[in-house]
Amino acid sequence: MSKLGQAKRIIFLKTADGQLFEVDEPVAMEFEIVKSFFDENEDAADDTVVPLPNVSAEPLAGIIEFCKAHVEFRANGAAGKDEVKKFNAEYIKEKSNEQLKELILAANYLNIKEMLDFLTETIANRLKNKSVEYVRAFFGIENDFTPQEEEAVRKEYEWAFEGVDED
């Protein structure tokens, strides 16, 4: 009962583009970087604003949505169940590759292992059995081989270019 009486602690996060986010404590503690900020500054006041100079508002909103859902899943004992998979699939469906990349960079900076694993695995699944050309176009990866180098690599590692799905 005592817990209900206590007001939920809110953590303030400030993004690179100057937006202020109010996040419930358990969700914010999913971010290793926030956690270690409070571990290092134990006497920090409750209304301290944690600056996140490498994250902008859009990916942070996405990350908070993801972590909030997963904190709830864990509280309900639903971790690892179909419910979670369904949520994850829905979550990722709407994201463009550019958004995905932003999310990955942000999750990497905030150091959220669970989410980072999920995001990189999603990318990995999108890469499987795809041709080099397809992946370059799909993920907007710039080809920095010269045509001669590319041809030499192709000849040497012919096996790696074979057996891919039709684009």
């Binding site: 590759n97 550019e98 990349k101 990955i104 960079l105 990497n108 980072l116 694993d117 990189t120 695995e121 990318i123 990995a124 699944n125 890469l127 499987k128 059995n129 795809k130 080099v132 992946v135 993920f139 907007g140 990866i141 710039e142 590692y157 096996w159 790696a160 270019f161 057996g163 891919v164």
Partner: peptide, 25 residues
């Protein structure tokens, strides 16, 4: 610039989820 600028550590993390031939590719 799409995924070109992804830091090594993240490329390696993606690679850890891939079968070998896809990682090489």
């Amino acid at each position: 610039d799409g995924f070109s600028s992804l830091p090594d550590e993240l490329v390696i993390l993606i690679i850890s989820f891939l079968p070998f031939i896809d990682a090489f590719r």
